[in-house]
Structure formats: structure tokens, C-alpha cells
Amino acid sequence: MTREEIRAAVLHALGEVAPEADLEALRPDVPFREQLDLDSMDVLNFVIGLDQALKVAIPESDYPRIGTLSGCVAYLEGRLGAGSSFVR
């Protein structure tokens, strides 16, 4: 999966929890929570969306690493390219 495809999947999952957001205007290094007013239920739904789209189980301890667009894409790139033991 390419970086662009991962980015698209992340934006799609965000769009599901914040449908009113202008996702193209997201600043890549500013936390989603600040830009999109996400609460803990939104974060869980975002993680569920990523899990279903990319088949990657993200442990709670890794939530801080997926808090920004750039961080999230980099984290998922690493997970998806790190070998099948990390991918469901």
C-alpha cells in the first residue's frame, strides 16, 4: 500500500467521525483532537475505521502515535511494511 493510499484511508476514517470537517485543510502536524474536536468515543471510532479499512490492530498504547495526520500515516506505513506479524 502506498503512502497516498494510507493517507486516503486515514482521511476517510476521519471523515466518518467528523463528517462536517474540511479534511483537505488539515494541518499535518497539529493533533486531530485540536483541529476536529474529537472526544474519546470519536478516537475509538477512528481506530475502528482504520482497523476495518487497513486490517491493522492498533493497541491503545499506540494511540499517541496516531494523533496527527503525519504521525498516523508514518505509523501505519511502518506497521503495514513491518511484516505480517503486525498485520491482522
Binding site: 474519546s40 468515543m41 475502528i48 482497523d51 493497541p59
Partner: peptide, 17 residues
């Protein structure tokens, strides 16, 4: 909560609320 969520699939995770 952390212990519970470690062993649950993401769709069954709990939030503190």
C-alpha cells in the same frame, strides 16, 4: 481498563466513560 482493552478486539474496547 487498560488490561481489558489489551485483550479485546478493537470493536469491543471500552472507554473510561
Amino acid at each position: 481498563l487498560a488490561e481489558q482493552n489489551q485483550s479485546r478486539p478493537v470493536t469491543d474496547r471500552l472507554v473510561a466513560a
